[in-house]
Design a protein around this nucleic acid. Structure first.
Lengths: 211, 211
DNA sequence: CACACTGGATAGTTCCAGTATCCAGTCGAG
DNA sequence: CTCGACTGGATACTGGAACTATCCAGTGTG
C-alpha cells in the first residue's frame, strides 16, 4: 500500500507519518522508485504501537529506544527488559547501584521476600514513587503494602505464565510491550473496581463478600 | 516560615514556587505586610503533592483541578472521584454517554460482573487502553482479563477498606489522591514482581504454584 | 501529456513549564 | 536612621517537544 492508504488506515496525519519516519519510529517502506515506496501490515501495526506509546505520554527518544529493543533484542531477557523499563516513567537521573540508596524500596521488597537487583531500574522507580508519597504527606502502611504485593504478584504470575517461550526474541518482545502497554489497562481497571467496590459496600455494608 | 525557607525545605526553586503560586497550585501564604507572607507545614506538604503529580507528567491545569476537588469537594464521592479521574491520563476528548461506544470495556466489565456507569470516565479510559492494545496488534485474552480483574479487585478492596469514613471530605481526599498517587507504586511493584517471578521460574520451573 | 501523488528536505507553529528580570516596599542588623 | 538583603507581584523570556506546513523535483496513471 502507499502512504495515503497507510494514513487512511491508521488515522495518523501524513505530516506525522513523515515525522515518525524521520525520527526512526517507523521503518521506511520498500522503495520501488525515487518517489514511491510500498508499506505493509507491519507498518500499520507499528504505527498503532507508536500511537499507544505516544498516547501514554512517552517522549519520542524513549519510544525509539523501546522499539529498538523490541526489534533487536541483544542480551538476556533481564538486561533487555531492564533497559526497556528504564524508558518508562518515572525517569531516574541517578543510575545508582548501591542498595542503601533505596531504603524504602528495600524495606518493601525484603518484606515481600522478593529477590531483586539494586541495579534494576524498577527498584529506583519504586523508591521514587514511595518517596513522592512521603513528601506529599500520604503514608504507605505495611498492611496496604502487603496486600498490594500479594495481588501484584498474582498479576505478574499471569503475565509471566502467558509469556511465549518458543524463542527468546518473542519472549523479550512480549515482556517489553506487555510491561508498557498493559499498565494503562490495569490502572483503568483499578479505577473502575474502586467505583464498583465502593458502590456495593455503601449499598449493603453487611454482605461485603462480592459475587 | 518565609519563602526562602520553604524553598530550602522543599528543594523547589523560588521561581517555580512563584509560578505555582501564580497558577493557583499553591495557596498564598498569610500576608503580614505588603512584601511579606508567612508559610506553614501545609505549604510544604502541598508543594510535595504538586511535585508528585507534576512528576507523574500531569499538566498544570489538571493538577489545579485535582487540588480544587481535594480542597473543595462539592458533590458525592462518586461525582468528585469521577471528576478527579477525568484529570488523569489517558485523556478523553469525547465525554460520551452511550454504552455502545465502549464495546471492549463493556465486554470486560460484563464479564467481571462489575457495575458501571457509562458516563464514568474510567470506562472510556479502559476502552481506549484496550483499543490501543488492539491497534498495536497485542491481543488481550479472556484468561488474562479474568486474572487481572480478580487481582485488581483485590487491590481495590484494600483501597476502599482503608478509606477513612469519619468525614465525607476525608474520604474524598483519600480517594482522589489514592487513585492518582498509588498508581506509580503499583506499576513499579509489578515490574519488580515480573523480575522476581521470571527469575524463580527459570531457576526451578517445576514448583510453579500459581493461584 | 497532464496531473495528482510521492519521498525528502526544511522551516515554521503551538504549547507548555519553567526561568529571569525588574520594581517598589519592608525587615532587621548595626 | 540607614543600608542592604529579602520579599511579593508583574511581565517578559527561554528552551524543548511534538507536530505541521511548504516546497521541490521526480513519478505513475489515466
Amino acid at each position: 500500500m502507499r502512504v495515503s492508504e497507510l494514513v487512511a488506515r491508521t488515522g495518523v496525519p501524513l505530516a506525522t507519518v513523515k515525522y515518525y519516519l524521520r525520527e526512526g519510529l517507523l521503518m521506511p517502506g520498500e522503495a520501488t522508485s525515487a518517489t514511491q515506496a510500498r508499506y505493509g501490515e507491519e507498518h500499520v501495526q507499528r504505527l498503532g504501537l507508536v500511537k499507544a506509546l505516544a498516547g501514554a505520554g512517552l517522549p519520542i527518544p524513549r519510544i525509539r529506544e523501546i522499539l529498538r529493543l523490541v526489534d533487536h533484542p541483544d542480551g538476556s531477557l533481564f538486561d533487555v527488559l531492564g533497559q526497556a523499563i528504564a524508558q518508562l516513567p518515572p525517569y531516574l537521573d541517578t543510575p545508582a547501584d548501591d542498595v542503601d540508596e533505596f531504603p524504602r524500596a528495600r524495606a518493601v521488597l525484603d518484606r515481600l521476600g522478593q529477590v531483586y537487583d539494586p541495579r534494576y531500574v524498577a527498584v529506583g522507580q519504586l523508591e521514587r514513587a514511595l518517596a513522592a508519597l512521603e513528601e506529599a504527606g500520604i503514608p504507605m502502611t505495611e498492611e496496604r503494602l502487603d496486600a498490594y504485593g500479594r495481588h501484584v504478584r498474582g498479576i505478574a504470575e499471569i503475565d509471566i505464565g502467558l509469556m511465549p517461550t518458543a524463542s527468546a526474541e518473542d519472549a523479550i518482545r512480549y515482556a517489553v510491550l506487555g510491561t508498557a502497554v498493559y499498565e494503562p489497562v490495569i490502572a483503568a481497571m483499578r479505577r473502575l473496581a474502586h467505583q464498583d467496590v465502593a458502590q456495593k459496600r455503601l449499598r449493603n455494608p453487611e454482605e461485603q463478600d462480592q459475587q
